[in-house]
Amino acid sequence: MVASNGSMATQSMAHAVKASSSSALGAIQVEGVGKVYPSRRGAASIVAVKDVSFSVAAGEFVSLVGPSGCGKSTMLMAIAGLTQPSGGRVVIDGQPVTAPRRSVGVMFQTPELFRWRNVLENVLLPVDVFGLNRAAYLERARELLRLAGLGAFEHAYPQELSGGMEQRTALCRVLVADPSIVLMDEPFGALDEFTRERLNIELLRIWDATRKTVVFVTHNIGEAVFLSDRVIVMGTQPGRVLEDVQVPLPRPRTVESMRERPYHETLYHIRDLLGLSH
């Protein structure tokens, strides 16, 4: 598996990926966004999200945390242009979001690798869809795979990969066309705790180097605190922002960061906000 070449590999991955990303684009403003699902047959309509506002600066790592039904995924999909808010708007780099755009990459909880494409071809999917020249991106895709510890697997098919390897492939896929914003919808939620932690550390190293804007949805508070500059804590009925929490942990963060006092203080502050007794 990939564990052995973990930290060294990702460090150099960081360098490789850094070279290709240059712009300071990727600022997000969410302005009073609401989402109402119309009812059927006269029942009350469902207010999924009500009047949510926050902003994410270019290069910032922000997590959305909250219980099921708080609308955190709805917010992510609104930023991605995959769903239209019923009220308010989302603005990216000064332009309101009306449809999905190339500069925004999305990673889902399930890897969604295509069984008829091998690992390399799966990573190149955005390149194919964007009508870019495959040859121009081949090296970058290979580099990403190599540094994600999947160098030996580029010709393997998704059926042959473990869950963690599948999500690594999906991570390479979202990065291959160099988006300025990466939206992640509980990407490691289906993985076991060990794999999840390893991938979190790798993700941070990559982010440290590329400084892409990341919006990360999770229901794992520890994961959110460890990864993020800010954690936006959301509540239910209706989905709304409870508090925008700064994470006072210095970067770069390592596993050791999780032993530090600010980590625990932030974690318990968020637990209190969400009404989790301890």
Binding site: Y37, A48, S68, G71, S73, T74, M75, M77, A78, L82
Partner: peptide, 12 residues
């Protein structure tokens, strides 16, 4: 409506 915001848009 599945709480994830992917329900098809409908006119009211």
């Amino acid at each position: 409506a599945d709480g994830n915001g992917f329900a098809p848009e409908m006119t009211t």
